[in-house]
Design a protein around this nucleic acid. Structure first.
Length: 279
DNA sequence: CGGCATCCCTGGGAGC
DNA sequence: TGCTCCCAGGGATGCC
């Protein structure tokens, strides 16, 4: 489900309710999601204070006191909800943290992780190992960061014989792009998802880099894309779904040239594009 | 190393 | 209304 814009939406919602706040109670309803949860996770969290909340690609990094990081990946169906009063847990609510301004203060927020398909995961580890964490160490640069550019795209795509759409989904080349925004960015760049990655050079690389940044920024402004599971932590839907140019629009007229949008399957994932505008 | 298929899991929608 | 089938925003893993 959640790609960079949705995860950033979650990060922004979590930051004020976690930062400087203490975990006064923790519920952990099962001992695994995609992978086993850290042992005694609830006991390890109670009494701890969060210091700040970061994002890396599709991961949320919740920094704790004593240089620890609570890592969250929402998989395809994970979502975070934040409540001001004690919620009754619903189906697939796996974790709940009760947050307060001090270890003994009254509860102020309840943070609930729901994940029906359980493709998400949670880890707790020392920040001193962040650069070595097996899930983070090989990740490519942030597309909204300084290290990202057309030159970077051209460099990491060099020699790649597979389609550019697949390369965009590869988190080791660029972090945070998923199936929706790959199709959207390629449309705005005028690049076919079928084009061989290695041929993305020069002006085409410039157009694609620009389209990636613009698309992701616009989606963040809209609170992400709500299709099936995703809602913002306050329960609001993400409105970018209204601005999707091609994703999910097969058969509909291209907004630029009215040619019907086409859907194809690449490596088992659907791609949407305008066969006339995108080359 | 690159590229592809397979697998993990539940729920919603389409089609009958 | 009810059943079956297919599909879904992710990524690790193993095979060639």
């Amino acid at each position: 489900m959640p790609e960079l814009p949705e995860v950033e939406t979650v990060r922004r919602a979590l930051a004020p309710v976690l930062t400087q706040h203490y975990v006064t109670a923790a519920f952990v309803g099962r001992n695994d999601l995609r992978w086993p949860l850290p042992k005694n996770l609830a006991e390890q969290l109670v009494g701890r204070q969060f210091t700040n909340v970061d994002r890396r690609g599709k991961y949320v990094l919740m920094h704790l006191d004593q240089q620890d990081i609570l890592l969250l990946h929402l998989g395809m169906s994970g979502s975070i909800r934040i409540y001001d009063t004690p919620p009754s847990l619903r189906k697939h609510d796996h974790i709940m943290l009760t947050m307060a301004a001090s270890p003994t203060a009254a509860a102020r927020h309840y943070i609930v992780l729901n994940d029906p398909r359980r493709f998400g995961w949670v880890d707790l580890f020392s920040a001193t190992h962040q650069d070595h964490h097996k899930l983070l160490r090989h990740m490519g640069p942030e597309p909204l960061g300084n290290a990202f550019s057309a030159t970077h795209l051209q460099t990491v795509f060099a020699g790649r014989q597979g389609p550019v759409k697949n390369a965009l989904l590869n988190q080791q080349l660029i972090a945070g792009i998923g199936n929706i925004y790959a199709s959207e960015a390629l449309f705005h760049a005028g690049v076919s998802p079928r084009r061989k990655a290695a041929t993305i050079v020069g002006q085409r690389a410039e157009r694609l880099a620009t389209a990636i940044v613009k698309t992701l920024r616009a989606a963040i402004e809209d609170g992400g894309t709500s299709l099936r599971d995703h809602v913002q932590p306050g329960g609001e839907i993400g409105y970018f779904v209204q601005r999707l140019a091609v994703y999910g629009r097969d058969g509909q007229a291209c907004q630029a040239c009215t040619t019907p949008i086409k859907m194809i399957v690449q490596s088992g994932r659907s791609s949407f594009y305008c066969p006339r505008c995108q080359r």
